[in-house]
């Protein structure tokens, strides 16, 4: 009877290249991001850069950063990028994609950037069917300028400019720009995702990848909304903010695909 060799399981036997299941993508610079603890901006940067790395397109993609908390996105994403004026990312991306149609192009924008000051640029880029990806972070607030009402702020939600809660009679209604854009023939892939649970992070990442694959097929405008958090301006701990997403944001901004090209 041969002896069964006994292997001792310890750190050294586990931490080996062949056993690696997750490491941060190389397309993300190894510098700490300036975002607040638990902020979804960081998560989305990370998973988008994972997608770029996995697709091997880091030399073939150009991004546009917004004005908002993610104004420094180009310090974290190790790809060619341009910084746009507040709200103008979709126009800048149009300029890039029109002269470099063979490159992947994306914008990364907050709700104020994409859905307030930049509404005209956003909607017309979508309507022209510009073949680039918008990653749209809906955190229901203006993060960078410390917590004013955003177009996406929920009914009754408190912000520094809606201190008694958002009242539609005064402040207008929360703006579902994603639903609006889904109506436009130029927008071909429109989906709403979140990154507040592990399962949702995985789904959001799949959606981002799908968007870039659609871009490769030259089908039209791709919009991936990510319902996200702003623990600092929501005055919550990161964990409380994830609960707020689940309980308050998602009933109003339900997750899922709004539009997918036929056969994809």
């Amino acid at each position: 009877m041969s002896e069964i060799p006994t292997i001792e399981i310890n750190k050294e036997t586990i931490i080996k290249p062949e056993n690696l299941v997750y490491k941060p993508p190389k397309t993300l610079f190894d510098t700490p991001m300036h975002y607040c603890p638990g902020c979804g901006h960081s998560t989305v940067h990370k998973i988008f850069m994972e997608v770029v790395e996995e697709m091997g397109i880091e030399n073939d993609i150009i991004g546009v950063a917004p004005v908002g908390c993610s104004v420094f996105a180009y310090y974290y994403m190790n790809v060619d990028m341009q910084e746009a004026a507040h709200g103008r990312a979709c126009a800048v991306a149009t300029g890039i994609k029109r002269v470099l149609p063979d490159k992947f192009v994306f914008t990364y924008q907050g709700d104020g950037d994409f859905a307030a000051i930049g509404t005209a640029e956003s909607i017309h880029a979508a309507n022209r069917g510009e073949n680039f990806l918008v990653i749209f972070i809906n955190n229901a607030v203006y993060g960078m300028t410390s917590g004013q009402m955003a177009p996406t702020t929920l009914y009754d939600m408190v912000s520094t400019t809606t201190p008694y809660g958002r009242d539609p009679k005064i402040h207008g209604h929360p703006f579902k720009i994603t639903d609006l854009i889904a109506q436009l023939p130029g927008a071909v892939y429109v989906t709403r995702q979140s990154v507040h649970t592990t399962a949702n992070v995985r789904k959001a990442k799949k959606a981002l990848r799908k968007a870039l694959e659609i871009q490769k097929l030259n089908l039209g405008f791709q919009l991936v909304e990510i319902v996200s958090n702003c623990p600092s301006n929501w005055r919550m701990t990161p964990l409380e903010s994830l609960k707020f997403i689940e309980e308050q944001m998602l009933p109003f901004y339900p997750l899922g695909d709004l539009k997918v090209p036929e056969g994809i």
């Binding site: 036997t13 299941v21 997750y22």
Partner: peptide, 15 residues
Amino acid sequence: CAIICPDACITVYRL
């Protein structure tokens, strides 16, 4: 943990 970590702090090995 690594998937949810916003700041890409975690590397994971599995045997």
